[in-house]
Design a protein around this nucleic acid. Structure first.
Length: 823
RNA sequence: GCCCGGGUGGCGGAACUGGUAGACGCGUCGGACUCAAAAUCCGAUUCUGGUGACAGAGUGCGAGUUCGAGUCUCGCCCCGGGCACCA
């Protein structure tokens, strides 16, 4: 409880620099953010850890402020809050920087980490730094190597050939990002597609669970769940064998629309399909076409947008129902990696098939009626809606479901088709031909094949005193790394030189944070903290990172380490930070350095602006004058408290009799109710701040020289404001909390509780509409019944003018909101 | 191309479950304080007409449902995210 005895004279102006360093020192002295499991309700709040690119950008500031506000709010609500931070330290930029500056990636990365850690501390985020993780630390990545070897034993990882972007000049593999218009970004050479052996994880084995468990993720945005569901893309269809004239092996396709089988007029194959390879041996033109298809790359966007091209093969397929001969094409939009690498083409009812058929003058047969039951118009586009079958012989008149069932039954009886559930999701390629990543713990032996590195030999440590100079990973050229002996037979062998996809590290760090010093991948402490209660990060991670992390959680569960089925109970996807309507990027030259802002305005201002400018899930438009506005508000708040303190500290009010005091008290408790809901449930920090600003404005309007009761209510209001703003602007609030006569840290205070009694209103204002247009506002008692409200409404002069003596046909009363009179 | 978002004053945004469009902040204009400026404080500020009370229009475009639509439905346009080796 406050008392005049604790009065300290306040600095008349807001000195953010001394306040922020002073408050941060107090937190450090109290070791305020270190947590261990106890018997309180836990709350694990996690923001996506950053790639240590050099310094923080505004996207980081926004992301981490959101997480910090949620963490501090839950802490004030009495929960045991874990909020850790670490570094997603492997990745391509470190290698690019090494080539450019001649600095080893390890050194570059660790220097960046040190710089960014300093910035995070300056921003005052409430992290338990004792749990800090850097994924390039062998003590971290050894455990994903360990898990990989377990999965290898179980057959959940496997090796197969897969294509990569090959730069023939730099003699290196390129990321998709490094391929610009089909050319290598550095060399400018035309990029080739090369098949090389690579490691894959069988995420498709978990496709059903990954899809079905989305239903239980109530705390996730529907948009993200929909994106993941579409990505997994479970479909039920039919795998159909088409005989190839003159050959023994049939051509197998998968289709989700067997009802359109009667409309198949040709077949399309991937360039890498075995049937094509055979034909290409004797046809140079075909071989050239296949080469062109391969060069075009495998990115789905390119696949779907490029001009549809084909090459007719000298063989024909046999329609399984009609026996008709169907031409077979190689097509540049069919990929061997998807389904069977072959599709049956129904140009009447598939738009892509329609475009191809039109270009190559192939027959287009409508076999599905339109909504009116007529032959559909397919002159300018395919008719893709489902409907009743026509031109389909014995299947005419059937619905989609009937036709699917009947055709599947007939073909299955003949042994030429099988019902099949298929996924769009493909297995996860884990191999990267790069240096700066976690080594894949495999040893290649001429006799034993690929052998997992034994647990006792883990980790396989990445040599760090290395500076790549371009032209790919230096690891294959390092005999001291490559040469080893086979763990099975003891003969000379070669170490795998590919490293892991960096999504590996980010797929389990959330679990490691619960027990960063565990001498296993994770230990029992994970059972207390997991799952993450609130995960915060960019919407750009909606699919890949979040899907891989969910997959890893299930893998860790199935090897007996974890209990939770899902890693993230609730997810908040943050929007982008824009300037002049575009994403901030170095190439556009429209970046804003948060460091300069912190120095000019202080961390609290930067945090306040980030939270005020937009709701967290929407993009945020950068505004320098908006930052000044946020700073101005903190100044105003400082003066408001200083003026109040000058009048003498009092105990906060617990009730009020006078009209002005009761009014301010009602506003205070209405604001507490709104801000608690905005911060705790809706995560709309912008509206929470607006509400606090309104309350501050209301306090400012109250006469400065006032009675003891009003002074007490003002004390109550200011204390509420400071507690509610403490998660957002923690430094200034801590200083103001002390100025108001307290010795505690404001972050240790309980979140304010809204009193229902203080919010009671005697009369309310209703809107009166005539035929849906607002014509007046009326004051009625809060408990007025419908008749009273309706009677008061028609008595209004302006309302009466618009009714103009006409009979009222209908009166709609929405309690507490409006009256609509229909005449 | 496909999947997922978004579009509201001069600007960022608010309107949560179909019920007062524009809270809060920025900017601008006017005023107070000052020798003056900065800072601060007060007032005005969607557009059009009107001294005014008030009236009309208005949430990307075009239809529709409803007593009532920024919100729901259908069809478009534009912007952003993702598309499997950027993280």
């Amino acid at each position: 409880m406050s008392s005049a005895g604790l009065f300290r004279a306040m600095e008349p102006s807001y000195r953010f620099d001394t306040i922020e360093s002073d408050v941060q020192r107090r937190w450090a002295d109290a070791d305020a953010f270190r947590v261990v499991a106890d018997d309180r309700e836990k709350f694990y709040c996690l923001s996506m850890f950053p790639y240590p690119s050099g310094k923080l950008h505004m996207g980081h500031v926004r992301n981490y402020t959101i997480g910090d506000v949620i963490s501090r709010y839950h802490r004030m609500c009495g929960r045991n809050v874990l909020q850790p931070m670490g570094w997603d330290a492997f990745g391509l930029p470190a290698e690019n920087a090494a080539i450019k500056n001649g600095v080893p990636p390890a050194q570059w990365t660790r220097e960046n980490i040190a710089a960014m850690r300093g910035q995070l501390k300056q921003l005052g985020f409430a992290y338990d730094w004792s749990r800090e993780i850097a994924t390039c630390d062998p003590d971290y990545y050894r455990w994903e190597q360990w898990l990989f070897t377990k999965l290898f034993e179980q057959g959940l990882v496997y090796r197969r050939e897969s294509v990569v972007n090959w730069d023939p000049v730099d003699q290196t593999v390129l990321a998709n990002e490094q391929v610009v218009d089909g050319r290598g970004w550095r060399s400018g050479a035309i990029v080739e597609q090369r098949a090389i052996p690579q490691w894959f994880a069988r995420i498709t084995d978990y496709a059903d669970e990954l899809l079905d468990d989305l239903d239980g993720l109530d705390g996730w945005p529907d948009a993200v769940k929909t994106m993941q569901a579409n990505w997994i893309g479970r479909s039920t269809g039919l795998e159909i064998d088409f005989d190839v004239a003159g050959q023994d092996t049939p051509l197998t396709v998968y289709t989700t629309r067997p009802d359109t089988l009667h409309g198949v007029t040709y077949m399309a194959l991937a360039a890498d399909h075995p049937l094509v390879a055979a034909a290409a041996d004797t046809d140079a033109e075909l071989a050239a076409f296949c080469e062109e298809c391969r060069r075009a790359g495998t990115a789905e966007a390119g696949l779907e947008t490029r001009d549809k091209k084909g090459y007719r093969l000298p063989i024909e397929a046999v329609h399984p129902l009609s026996g008709a001969r169907l031409p077979i094409f190689v097509a540049n939009f069919v990929l061997m990696g998807y389904g069977t690498g072959a599709v049956m083409s129904v140009p009447g009812h598939d738009q892509r098939d329609w475009e191809f058929a039109t270009a190559y003058d192939l027959p287009i047969v409508p076999v599905i009626a339109d909504a009116e039951g007529n032959t559909p118009d397919i002159s300018s586009a395919a008719a893709v809606e489902k409907g009743v079958l026509i031109n389909s012989g014995e299947d005419d008149g059937k619905t989609f479901e009937q036709a699917f069932g009947d055709i599947a039954d007939r073909l299955e009886a003949r042994g030429t088709a099988r019902r099949k559930t298929q996924y769009r999701l493909r297995d996860w390629g884990l191999s990267r031909q790069r240096y700066w990543g976690a080594p894949i713990p495999i040893i290649h032996c001429d006799d034993c094949g690929p052998v997992a590195v034994p647990e006792s030999d883990l980790p396989v440590v990445l040599p760090e005193n290395v500076t790549p100079e371009g032209a790919g990973s230096p690891l294959p050229d390092m005999p001291e790394f490559v040469n080893c002996t086979c763990p099975q037979c003891g003969r000379d062998a070669r170490r795998e030189t590919d490293t892991f996809d960096t999504f590996m590290e980010s797929s389990w760090y959330f679990a490691r944070f619960t027990c960063p010093d565990a001498d296993s991948m994770i230990d029992d402490r994970a059972h207390y903290w997991m799952p993450v209660d609130q995960y915060v990060g960019g919407i750009e991670h909606a699919i890949l990172h979040l899907l891989y992390a969910r997959f890893f959680q299930k893998l860790m569960r199935d090897v007996g380490l974890a209990r939770a089925d899902e890693p993230f109970k609730a997810l908040l996807t943050q929007g982008m930070v824009l300037k002049d309507g575009a994403k901030m990027s170095k190439s556009k030259g429209n970046t804003v350095d948060p460091q300069a802002l912190i120095e000019t305005y202080g961390a609290d201002t930067v945090r306040l602006f980030s939270m005020f400018a937009a709701p967290p899930d929407q993009s945020l438009e950068w505004s320098e004058s908006g930052v000044e506005g946020a700073h101005r508000f903190l100044n105003r708040l400082w003066r408001l408290v200083a003026t109040h303190v000058d009048n003498g500290l009092v105990a906060p009010a617990t009730g009020a009799e006078g009209e002005a005091a009761a009014e301010l008290r009602r506003k205070t408790h209405e604001t507490i109710a709104k801000v608690g809901d905005d911060v705790g449930r809706r995560h709309t920090f912008n509206t929470a701040i607006a509400a606090v600003m309104e309350l501050a404005n209301a306090i400012g309007r109250v006469e400065e020289t006032c009675d003891a009761e009003t002074q007490a209510v003002r004390q109550e209001s200011l204390e509420a404001i400071i507690k509610m703003l403490a998660p957002i602007a923690p430094h200034i609030c801590d200083a103001l909390w002390r100025a108001l006569g307290h010795d505690t840290l404001v972050m240790a205070e309980a979140w304010p509780v809204a009193e229902a009694a203080a919010q009671v209103r005697e009369s309310i204002t209703l809107v009166v509409q005539v035929n849906g247009k607002v014509r007046a506002r009326i004051d009625v008692p809060a408990d007025a019944d419908r008749d009273t409200v309706a009677r008061t409404a028609v008595e209004d002069v302006n309302v009466a003018r618009h009714i103009d003596g006409q009979p009222i046909k209908k009166t709609i009363v929405v309690p507490g909101k409006l009256v609509n009179l229909v005449v």
